[in-house]
């Protein structure tokens, strides 16, 4: 059953050192506020799972929260590199980062397998790709009916899934719409699920085919308006493409990155305060 709590309490209760954590949201609804709170609470040795690490994991990796990364595309979309991700892989800074690399098709299927309670996912994937040579978790199975060899990857079963959604009702049911990515699969694959929401409403007013996560699959809900910024929440605010471009300069250099994170994340109490500080800096 869902508990309505502060974001700080949700993270403190449900994410522990050493956990495997999937903070999902495919470009849209990325749970940035939750990522910041994990950094503030100094979680360590996490296995971070996410198709596109994006800025959220660039920050967590650069701040030393991650021991391992499972991913399928590690860039700053439309801008270039994720510099903290690259620095960790290329130079082991701030600490060595183990990584398990997939393609999107396999990773999406691995979440679906996790949600389905299956041990692995089969797909017609990785044909002729060198990824299979470097990732021992990419194997193959033979179809018992046709004899076709298919790629097999283990199901993703994170300890915790973290997502941001548009709405929850007072009973704790959650509604997302727009680009829904792999959030439903990630939540259903995980042992625990934390959801941050734009607003809490009396009635979700969801149609019968809407993407709704019932309260009884959600562990905790925190009300965090704008909690996906600088990504976006469809119907609430647009993607801050300018910030994604500015992140390139903020994150390129280790000291600049650390100073920025200290000033804007570690020294702010919550996401509202963070946003206010970043907005002031942008207008200065």
């Amino acid at each position: 059953m869902t508990a309505f709590v502060s974001l700080a309490e949700a993270i403190a209760t449900h994410i522990h050192d050493g956990d495997s954590v999937a903070m999902e949201g495919f470009t849209h609804l990325i749970p940035m506020a939750a990522g910041h709170e994990v950094i503030r609470q100094e979680r360590r040795d996490l296995t971070l799972i996410r198709m596109t690490p994006d800025l959220i994991y660039d920050q967590l990796i650069g701040m030393g929260c991650a021991r391992k990364l499972i991913f399928s595309w590690g860039g700053n979309p439309g801008v270039g590199s994720l510099h903290r991700f690259r620095d960790a892989i290329e130079h082991g800074w701030p600490q060595p980062l183990a990584y398990e690399e997939h393609g999107h098709a396999a990773m999406a299927s691995a979440y679906a397998a996790g949600a389905s309670g299956l041990p692995f996912a089969a797909l017609r994937g990785y044909l002729g790709s060198d990824l299979a040579k470097h990732n021992p978790n990419i194997r193959s199975v033979e179809c018992p009916f046709t004899g076709e060899r298919l790629a097999a990857v283990p199901a993703l079963r994170p300890d915790v899934a973290v997502i941001h959604a548009q709405k929850a009702d007072r009973a704790g049911n959650v509604l997302i719409w727009g680009i829904v990515g792999v959030q439903k699969e990630a939540v259903l694959a995980a042992k625990r699920a934390i959801v941050t929401v734009e607003e809490i409403v009396e009635d979700l007013a969801a149609g019968p085919n809407a993407t709704v996560l019932p309260s009884w699959v959600v562990s905790a809900i925190a009300h965090v308006p704008r909690g996906a910024a600088p990504s976006y929440a469809h119907g609430y605010y647009a993607r801050d493409n300018g910030f994604y471009k500015r992140w390139d300069a903020i994150s390129r250099d280790r000291r600049t990155f650390l100073a920025w994170m200290r000033e804007n994340v570690l020294e702010t109490g919550d996401f509202g305060e963070y946003e206010e500080r970043v907005r002031k800096a942008a207008n200065a």
């Binding site: 991913f71 595309w73 590690g74 860039g75 393609g103 999107h104 994937g125 790709s129």
Partner: peptide
Amino acid sequence: VRLPGAGGASE
């Protein structure tokens, strides 16, 4: 140089 990776491209 670590590039972003496959994304959807392999399939």
